[in-house]
Nucleic acid binder design. Structure first.
Ligand SMILES: [Zn+2]
Ligand SMILES: [Zn+2]
Ligand SMILES: [Zn+2]
Ligand SMILES: [Zn+2]
Lengths: 121, 121
DNA sequence: TCACAAAATGGAAATGATTATCATTTCCAA
DNA sequence: TTGGAAATGATAATCATTTCCATTTTGTGA
């Protein structure tokens, strides 16, 4: 956990929601921080490894990042404003386990996200 | 539905599982078909629009495609061999709907995939 | 405080998937 | 047959991400 990691955590806290590496880099630059894009990518990768931020993908495949709680969870994301709610996925966990057993899969993981338009939008 | 679309459907039928645009292009080229990469991308995009193929993403964000049934469903994918099972997600559908209602979201969609190691691997 | 190795940093170039252009070819209905 | 629309594919352009590498910063023992 070095200086750059902390900078990224700070900006993610400030912005909330998901943002891409490029966007986070621009924000920091705009604020006068001379951090390099390479360092932004490195810090984000490190934070993902440490499970401090979530990585998921926009529809076009671009990686987006968000500060997250420390427990396994899923997201409800607004396609309008990007507002995000962390939700708990009891039903999913059970479903994934059941399906995996039924078909004889092991070392099982899963992804599940919900997206729509929030009440404000 | 033009000639190229049919070629792509044919090769996807033959290979089964997911493959990237680049991989599908290589396969066709290897078989002597002079189809261009551009056309492969166009055909795949068109098939996705028509809901004839599924588009999902590798961990690195690369798009992968697979011929699929015509009803809403999810996937159980082997990380070893790529073998894929279409599964039905009743629990997910209910979960997504419930969560969306609880937080006042509308026009709701969702993604859910399970991945692991199949019994053969 | 000083010297020095390890870690961190950032700019530039490389990579690789996807998309945009555009000239040419194929289709097809009149 | 013919004129225009649709399809095609080579090439170039985009754009996110990674690699490389030289420089700077940091930490530590003498
Ligand atoms: Zn919203
Ligand atoms: Zn889960
Ligand atoms: Zn397998
Ligand atoms: Zn579903």
């Amino acid at each position: 956990m070095n200086k750059s990691d902390l900078k990224l955590i700070a900006v993610l806290e400030r912005t909330g929601g998901f943002a891409s590496a490029q966007e986070l880099h621009q924000i920091l630059r705009r604020e006068g921080d001379g951090i390099g894009l390479t360092t932004v990518y490195r810090a984000l990768q490190s934070l993902v490894d440490d499970k401090i931020v979530d990585l998921l993908r926009r529809e076009d495949g671009e990686a987006i990042y968000r500060l997250c709680g420390d427990t396994h969870h899923h997201h409800l994301v607004c396609k309008g404003c990007g507002n995000t709610v962390e939700i708990e996925g009891g039903a999913i966990e059970k479903w994934a386990k059941t399906m995996a057993e039924e078909f004889g899969f092991r070392e099982v993981g899963h992804t599940a996200e919900i997206f729509g338009i929030c009440s404000k939008c």
